[in-house]
Structures are given as C-alpha cells and as structure tokens.
Design a protein around this nucleic acid. Structure first.
Lengths: 133, 133
DNA sequence: TGAAATAGGACTACACCAGTCGTATTTAAG
DNA sequence: CTTAAATACGACTGGTGTAGTCCTATTTCA
C-alpha cells in the first residue's frame, strides 16, 4: 500500500542514468545490465516514457534514448504520471469518476484526504531529476 | 498505485464518527449502516484498531467502541500503520529488509526516495482526527 | 544484407484486496 | 438462567493489479 511500482523505480533509475552521462545516447541493454533490471520490463517503461515525451528514442543500430527535456524540467511526478498513465491519487475519487466510489455521497473524509492529496502532489512535483544525479 | 486501502478509509471514517459524537459508544452496525460500509469488513478493521490501542472495545450487549486517546492524539499515519500492520513505505527497502530488494546494491535512487518518504510521513502524521471532525 | 536497436502484443504466475460466511465468546437485560 | 446484542476471529472466494517472460515486427547503421 502506498508503494511506487517497480516500473516507476526503473523509469527513475533510467532517466537519472541518462542525465548522469550528460544526455549521451543510452540503450536498454546498457542500463538493464548496469542496474540489474530485467531488460524486457525496462524496454516497455522506456517506450512509455517516450510516448510521454520525457525521453526521445533513436531507432535502429546505434540507437537508444536521450532526454527530451532538461533534467531540471523532469519531476518524479512526471515520471509517475507518464508510466502509470493516470493521475496519482490516494483514493478512487481522486483518480476515477468521484461517483464511481460506492460511498462517495456518505463519505466524510474526502475533504481532509484532498488536502493530503494536494500535499503529496507537491512533494512529488518538487523533486526534479537534476537533484538526484 | 499509491492508493490507500478501503480498510484505511473505513477506519478513518469510523474513528472520525466516534469523535464526532463526543466519544459516545458506537457499534459496527450503526457505523456501517450510516456510511454504507460492509459490516463484516468494518468489524475486522475495528478489531485491528482495538489491538493497535487507537480505540477501545466494549464487548457484549450494549457494547461497541470508543476512542482510546484524545482525537488530537490520533493521526492519519497512526491509522495507516495500525491497519496495515507495517510501516508505510514507498519502496520495498523502506518497508522490508533493504537487502530483500534485488537491485538494492545498484540502486541509485534510494537516497532521494528516502527524502520523499520522509516528507510523506510528515504529511500523514500532521493531520490529526481532531481536524477532520 | 546483417546486426543492433526500438516497438509492441500475448501470456503467465503471483500477490494483494475487498468482501462473504460461519462460528465462538462476552455481557446486559428481562 | 436464558436470550439477544454485540465483539472476536478464522476460512474462503473472486477480482484486480503487478512483475516478468516470450515472441515477432520494424527501423537504421555499417
């Protein structure tokens, strides 16, 4: 509960890696071997990060990935959002249609939890990749 | 991902309810009907909160639950810890043995994530039940 | 043309979550 | 002393999500 997924961890490690080599082109093979990450899983993560415009892909031989933005313009929140494909939310009513929650109308804690939600978003958005290189 | 469990939500609603009626004895039936929470699930949650000394149980007819502490001495963090039965942690290395994570030694993000973890703990610990009544 | 690399779908194994059911125990009230 | 109301608690199920593997297609450099 309240754990980040492995995919997010792998994504952060990979993006941090590329930043740490001054944005030189890096391959899935290279990263997965260096950090002991399963290659197939990392490959899918990189594809998502590419679709989310956080990194750019270079296909074909001698290809790989580079950052698509400056490292101080990529937050942990960005990585989470792109990989999960949805807004981060600590309850159903913050990620899906509020009415989808069966107790929504009787719920007495949605306001205080909304405050917590807001604070969490701030924590994740504040940390940029540039700080963790 | 990063969602609170329903059990935690139910626990918060229940504790808030008891606080809102000035700590008068409240039953599972009463709470589950008022907030449309499945009674059996709530019952187990209440038992955990009792074992965790956040509330006190009164067995037998006319029994029920009351708070075991002042409502400004119960935080959202307390409820999470007691119900989940383990420390809240955004990664494996913050909840289990750090070495249980297969990439622990090569992990380059555990320090920055530790900082985030610390901030999250602060957010959840800061909000007390007394604020949400 | 071949090798190295990304792109992406299908599938499996496993764990966790939410909820249900059944039964035992405790205690107030008549 | 019996009954009803309430907590205590274990077993079980169905659904969902996660992590990982496998296979194939496509792109591009040398």
């Amino acid at each position: 509960m309240l754990k980040l997924s492995k995919k997010v961890e792998y994504g952060l490690i990979a993006i941090r890696h590329i930043a740490s080599v001054n944005n030189q082109i890096s391959t899935v093979k290279e990263i997965s071997e260096k950090y002991l990450i399963p290659g197939d899983v990392l490959a899918k993560v990189m594809q998502k990060l590419t679709k989310g415009k956080l990194i750019a892909s270079h296909q074909g031989a001698m290809g790989g990935y580079t950052l698509a933005r400056r490292s101080d313009e990529i937050s942990v929140m960005d990585v989470i959002s792109v990989i999960e494909g949805s807004q981060m939310g600590i309850t159903q009513c913050f990620t899906e249609e509020p009415q989808s929650c069966s107790i929504y109308l009787n719920c007495t804690i949605k306001n205080p939890l909304g405050k917590i939600q807001h604070n969490l978003e701030h924590v994740f958005s504040s940390m940029k990749v540039s700080e963790i290189v």
